[in-house]
Structure formats: structure tokens, C-alpha cells
């Protein structure tokens, strides 16, 4: 099989994008392979009901064990 592509002129005037989110790609150019994965979970039953005091105790215990308050993503 012979696969031949001719990329003739491409001229775009104006592009307006509100958001590129959740492992999405906005590309002006050429590429070979793309793999985009997104795991998203926001069900109504993901509701945790507990008292305020319990949560604070858990947080303190975790901080002591790890010795670091940096809980941000890597």
C-alpha cells in the first residue's frame, strides 16, 4: 500500500479557545502519535459526612507521620 499525503497551504485567521483541560491537546503543527488518558470521578454518592473535629485529627496525624505538610500534587 502506498499512502501519500500532500500538505498544501494552511492559513487560519483566528482561533479562540476557552479551555484545554483534563489531558487534552491543542496543537498547531504536525505530530505522529497521541495518547490522552483522563480518569474523572464525580459521582453524587462520593459524599463523606463526618464531623469537623474528626477531620482535623486525621490531618494532624498525617502531617506528623510524614514530617511534611506538602500535600500538593507532584
Amino acid at each position: 500500500m502506498n499512502h501519500i499525503v500532500h500538505n498544501y497551504g494552511l492559513h487560519v485567521g483566528n482561533i479562540r479557545v476557552t479551555g484545554v483541560s483534563g489531558s487534552s491537546l491543542f496543537l498547531i503543527g504536525d505530530n505522529k502519535t497521541v495518547r490522552l488518558h483522563s480518569f474523572f470521578d464525580t459521582p453524587p454518592e462520593s459524599l463523606i459526612v463526618r464531623t469537623q473535629d474528626e477531620v482535623v485529627e486525621e490531618a494532624n496525624a498525617n502531617v506528623d507521620r510524614k514530617g511534611s505538610g506538602n500535600e500538593q500534587d507532584d
Binding site: 483534563g22 489531558s23 496543537l27 504536525d30 505530530n31 502519535t33 495518547r35 488518558h37 483522563s38 480518569f39
Partner: peptide, 10 residues
Amino acid sequence: VDHVDATNYT
């Protein structure tokens, strides 16, 4: 870009 491999967990 030759290869894109993006992963997101939310």
C-alpha cells in the same frame, strides 16, 4: 511533536 502521552486523574 512526535509523541504525546498525557494522563490525568481527577
